[in-house]
Write a protein that binds this DNA or RNA. Structure first.
Lengths: 238, 238
DNA sequence: GGCTACTACTTGTCTATACAAGTGCATATC
DNA sequence: GATATGCACTTGTATAGACAAGTAGTAGCC
């Protein structure tokens, strides 16, 4: 067995010092040159160790000042949100999709604000009903900025999902999600064929591409047929 | 204005080639040496550019074979789940917490399965009611593996949240989340003072520490008073 | 006191070079 | 034909040195 790389040994040395409490948050770490000397390494090797630890969030570095142990971030777990088609496929279901609406409209006030357009501007509007084995599991309404995805209206969404098309047309820079439990509006309820009291999950999402709002969408799923699942592994991988 | 660092220029050059489609997934990228020559840089500088792009998931590298454009990952957005106390604080609310139960119990079948213990083993059980300005916003029930957090029962949870205590006692390796829209059980409804038909968000979470299940918890919030929010920035920052 | 200049130290970037290790191919050998 | 060897090429790691740029403190000056 060959020993781990020298820069890995240096990283491990620092991580151990942090994890055992020998180095506390905001403590100063020896400079690259000092540490390189300690390990009989060159400065570039110590630099690599420090740089990677900074990327991993264990250290913070300031030019001219030094390197310090990072404060642990406040707790925040992550939930991965997959597209409905993949969710159903992973679950072993059979996905189908009905296009209820696919048209160009003029933006009303609410939509124009969300998309960062002026009221009256053209927007693309789609309403899709996703089914698993014929049972409605998601009613998804989407407004799309025509400037970002001009071909949005001429896709066949019974074959590819809007997410898939948008993903390759307009790479997502940023996304904003809101998840709520709501009662279902009556027109949605009819398509999903659920009762008035059935609680529903509403996921509202806005995405940004090319430094402008690309989409604004609302996805409604009956609580009895759909749940958001996700696992999150913390830590230092790649 | 000073120009961006040379390794940044090389990175940008590659990223642009990928984004414009000039380089497609699985395409081979010129070797470090070739690219270094093109830019009049040393190999180490090209190496840094490639290494960072590989860390960012845009390239994959194989020793002896070369560097290739990474295949885009299937779409999956991320939602950040903050602790309720922080959520309320960020929102400008006033958080308080009432301890409804804090005791050691023997695990029933369901709980023992979830925690990976044997039925009859001791577990810690807590029920807390979180309020914002006196209004109930979350009913959270938690089962804790005593092996992982032996001091769980003797904390003052009106002052620190269980999350905060658990976070520093037992670092979370992994977490599993399920979000559902449900109707609220009657005993929870009483504490939250909501109607029978009010849809609620139920977040179920299991966490792992030290290679075993640490906690199993259920958090229920009325849909009218609570929503999960999160933004997600893809890519290339720092 | 308030200002500037200088110095020592830090991290950030970059070069030129070196050897190790892994891949793929052509060539030589059995 | 099957196997072994060597070569060209790739990435991975490491070195020693250089200059740029930022910080903090000190000394000197007005």
């Amino acid at each position: 067995m060959s020993p781990p790389a020298l820069y890995e040994q240096i990283k491990q040395h620092i991580v151990t010092a942090i994890d055992t409490g020998r180095l506390k948050p905001d403590d100063r770490v020896p400079s690259e040159i000092r540490l390189a000397r300690e390990f009989g390494a060159s400065r570039m090797t110590a630099n690599r160790a420090f740089k990677e630890l900074a990327e991993e969030g264990r250290l913070v570095r300031f030019q001219g000042m030094g390197t310090f142990v990072a404060r642990p971030k406040p707790e925040a777990a992550l939930l991965e949100i997959k597209s409905i088609a993949r969710e159903i496929a992973d679950w072993g279901g059979v996905h189908s999709c009905e296009v209820l609406l696919l048209a160009e409209e003029t933006a009303d006030r609410q939509v124009s604000v969300k998309l960062g357009l002026a009221p009256g501007d053209a927007v693309f509007h789609s309403i899709l009903l996703h089914r698993d084995r014929g049972v409605g599991v998601q009613y998804s309404e989407r407004y799309v900025n025509p400037a970002v995805a001009p071909g949005y209206l001429v896709q066949d969404y019974t074959r590819i999902t809007p997410s898939a098309y948008l993903l390759e047309t307009a790479p997502v820079q940023e996304a904003e999600h809101v998840i709520e439990a709501v009662r279902c509006p009556v027109h949605v309820r009819m398509h999903l064929q659920i009762g008035a009291a059935e609680p529903c999950l509403r996921l509202t999402r806005r995405t940004w591409s090319f430094d402008q709002v690309a989409t604004f969408s609302t996805m409604i799923s009956p609580g009895c047929r759909y749940q958001l699942k996700g696992t999150f592994n913390r830590g230092i991988h790649r």
